[in-house]
Design a binder for these strands. Structure first.
Lengths: 133, 133
DNA sequence: TTAAGCCTTGCCCTCAAGGGTAAGGTCAAG
DNA sequence: CTTGACCTTACCCTTGAGGGCAAGGCTTAA
């Protein structure tokens, strides 16, 4: 029964992929993909028996996660975006843009913090030099 | 015997302090102080029986560690400085200055990295906006 | 000698993002 | 029906700097 329904051809058309296939396609490790699911970043995968099966849409989500990570986003920061994306046909542009804008603001804050620290270090250095003379 | 030698008065003069006293003086927790010892940042404390006893010099070292931490130094970064300081009468100025200079260089690198990331995010935002129109 | 207040070691927990390995179950094909 | 490739859960490990707790030992003043 199942064998007739899920022939190789139909598989490819429905893109019912095991986790290893998704991993190969997206470049994420199997472990990472399960991890995303375990922390609720990806919705629980459908199962065929005990095996997780994924569609090309899921591959897109994983791709998105990897891409976003390379831009410095943490998995936690991506939760909402991924959740929404998995429920709507297209990437929620506004949400993604807001994410980026907030990240940029955080970066600006980081730079300010680092500069403040640098100033303190500079002053410390000056004080030490003075105590030398 | 020991009781005659280590009277309260003599104690105060020799500043033989239990870990709780050092903790109170320096503001570091007992746990933190033991932690510094366990990772080899502080030399193994002398013992009176099973209790660690510290001198005011040790208090100075702990103070130094806390101070340096507030300037963004990790315990690992302080290893050499603390080791040397604990073996010489005064703070090794040159070594401390080099540490600061190196830290400032690292901060500059961090800022460069953040700015590069910010540029990428800006570009990404532009691309997304374009795909909107 | 005893109570109160210190101190001791040892173990698990935190956060992020998985890596590594074990031990075993399952799938598709020959 | 077996083989080999793939999958499953489950547990421990990593970095940094300790926090929290347990269970018990030490000190010292009264």
């Amino acid at each position: 029964m199942r064998h007739e329904i899920f022939t190789a051809k139909v598989w490819r058309e429905q893109a019912n992929l095991y986790i290893g296939q998704i991993a190969k396609i997206t470049g994420a490790s199997r472990k990472a993909i399960r991890h995303y699911e375990s922390i609720g970043l990806l919705p629980p995968a459908k199962r065929q028996g005990k095996y997780r099966v994924y569609s090309e849409r899921d591959a897109f989500l994983v791709h998105m996660i990897k891409h976003a990570q390379s831009f410095g986003f943490s998995l936690a920061e991506l939760r909402e975006l991924v959740a929404t994306t998995s429920k709507t046909p297209r990437l929620p542009l506004k949400m993604a843009q807001n994410l980026i804008i907030r990240k940029r603001a955080a970066l600006r804050r980081q730079i300010a913090d680092i500069r403040a620290l640098d100033k303190r270090l500079m002053q410390l250095l000056r004080d030490m030099t003075r105590s030398f003379n």
